[in-house]
Design a protein around this nucleic acid. Structure first.
Lengths: 244, 244
DNA sequence: GAATGTCTTTGCGCTGGCGCAAACAGTCGG
DNA sequence: CCGACTGTTTGCGCCAGCGCAAAGACATTC
């Protein structure tokens, strides 16, 4: 699904431009401005009037939402080739999220008008956008359901599995999640607190499931996490049945 | 936003067909098959291969998700004029949700192929779909954030406010939510349990905020709910500050 | 109108997870 | 090498909300 590579070589790999001829892709790309944003800086803030639709070429973007009280929630990460911030720009709305560069980024940006015209001219673009958006909607819905029905341990396990898919790098000893994520970040991705995450990771480490360093986690036994996420009978049975 | 009326008079009111000429709307509508589904029955079940994109003409549809353990979560209701079930049909995916008629329904249905062609022919349709989908994504994200950060009381208050917007009918004495919703339903819409909802409603009734009958709620003081949802200092101060 | 089923309320006990506070690493700059 | 940060761990107390069980209210059927 997502690109394993961190940077993007060609227009071929842009979701939005799939199925267009190379020449057409060129035309569309020409209509965009390039846009660099360095680590920690942001493309846009939640509430800003939505002007641009972006496609990330290089780097990684963190999409977050802020509660009125200032608490943060991480919605997702964007990998090279994906669009973001986008569809709000087609209407006259404001951005519903904040997009922060979690490493130095390079992106293409079209303003709403331009992109609307391009989509009318090349409906494939709109169709591609629709598909991506639908996939994203589905993902958020799934996570909404998880949050509504599942306990913390499972949700955190799921978060790790997702991270492995997005940024997992095989190593001897397990799969490294190749991102710098604090306990706080993990908590914001799982709908819990940094304390609970910390306690959970400590336990998992004691049980040999993972090895965690500061801001970095190595998953030693990924399918043990799957067992937790799916509530399969784990290898180390957590509890005896009550006496008969 | 949503249509107040329960049934739809003309093609003019279909989100997907906004901005097309009447003749074009006709063509598009002709390509659809009509589809009746009676109360309690379902358009499709979560996991079914996604074939059709629907637009609701009449009735009301409940979109839900089921956990592997069989617990249900209500994602949203669809009012006449809105599309649903849809975008999965453009790819070759399965439906990520279940769509159940919560009253007798009439809908238009296009299969994925047909709709893809229509969108290529009339890009406006794709653009309209994009906007709707974007709005829906944003809504789910907001609710995700609420679920992750806010306590039950607020979430239930928000659920009511949303319901008022979607199906509120003014009456003497307040606003009636003109839907039959059990405590269980309200719980599934708020991410909690029917017990908690019941207790909360009892309290609100004691405080004169609402009047609740079986499967029906009359909101007497809507802006008191807003106060709860936004954590404003309520009119009846819940607590005294601790002594100095 | 008695009987049956569905929905709702409420008491009760329990616990998962929150959140403070304080100690404990690593990391960075000079 | 030292201090100052920033991130992490852990103990501790607490309570919001869960979930059972049992009773009560309302509907529906024959």
């Amino acid at each position: 699904m997502a690109l394993p590579a961190e940077s993007l070589q060609s227009l071929q790999q842009i979701d939005l431009l799939q199925g267009l001829r190379a020449a057409e892709q060129e035309v569309v790309a020409q209509a965009a401005r390039r846009c660099r944003v360095e680590q920690e800086a942001s493309f846009f803030q939640q509430g800003d009037p939505a002007v641009f639709l972006y496609v990330l070429l290089k780097g990684r973007v963190k999409l977050t939402q802020l509660t009125p009280e200032g608490q943060e929630v991480i919605l997702r990460f964007i990998a090279p080739g994906e669009m973001f911030g986008g569809i709000a720009a087609l209407g006259d709305a404001s951005y519903p999220t904040t997009a922060e560069a979690s490493k130095d980024c390079l992106a293409l940006a079209w303003d709403g008008q331009t992109m609307t015209h391009l989509m009318e001219r090349y409906p494939r673009i709109a169709l591609n956008a629709l598909k991506r958006l639908a996939a994203r909607l589905q993902e958020v819905q799934d996570r909404y359901r998880e949050l509504a029905t599942e306990r913390v341990e499972r949700r955190v396990a799921r978060t790790f599995l997702r991270l492995i898919r997005q940024a997992g790098v095989k190593q001897e000893g397990g799969v490294l999640i190749d991102l710098t994520l604090s306990r706080q970040d993990l908590a914001e991705m799982s709908g819990t607190t940094l304390f609970t995450v910390s306690r959970l990771l400590s336990r998992w480490e004691r049980e040999g499931l993972i090895e965690s360093k500061r801001k970095r986690v190595l998953v030693c036994r990924p399918h043990a996490l799957v067992a937790i996420a799916e509530d399969l009978p784990a290898n180390s049975p957590p509890k005896e049945p009550s006496e008969p």
